[in-house]
Amino acid sequence: MSDITWEAPFCQDGSNCFRIGTDADGNAYIAVAGQEDRYLTDSREALQALIAEIKAGKADHLL
């Protein structure tokens, strides 16, 4: 496994923080901040698509 470069945590209202990371092999990672050893991974393209759908409001029903 390659080293993961994590972005700064993103927090909604000071809680529910998560982090996005990438590696040199083109993989993307998402984890709860502080639990980066327990992540989900997929391609960068899949993560970009997920973020675009969330920004478009297609996940609002889950909140």
Rank of each mutant, 00 (worst) to 15 (best):
D23S: 09
R38A: 14
F10H: 15
T41S: 15
R38Y: 14
N27P: 04
L47E: 01
T5R: 14
A52D: 10
A8Q: 13
L62F: 00
D23I: 01
L62E: 02
A24W: 10
L50W: 11
A33E: 05
I4A: 05
V32S: 14
A24P: 09
I30P: 01
M1E: 14
Q48H: 12
A56S: 12
D37T: 11
L47M: 05
D42R: 13
F18H: 05
T22S: 13
A24C: 10
G21A: 06
L62A: 02
F10Q: 06
I4V: 14
A31Y: 05
A56M: 02
W6A: 01
A59R: 12
N27A: 09
K55R: 11
W6F: 06
D13L: 15
F10N: 12
A33R: 01
A24Q: 15
G34R: 09
F10P: 01
G57P: 07
I30M: 11
A8P: 01
D23K: 03
Q35I: 05
I51F: 03
C11M: 11
T5P: 04
L63S: 12
R19M: 13
L62H: 02
A49M: 06
S2C: 10
G21D: 05
A59G: 05
G57N: 06
S2P: 14
K55L: 06
L47K: 03
M1D: 10
L50F: 07
A24I: 13
T41E: 13
G21K: 05
V32N: 13
D37P: 01
Y29W: 06
A56Q: 07
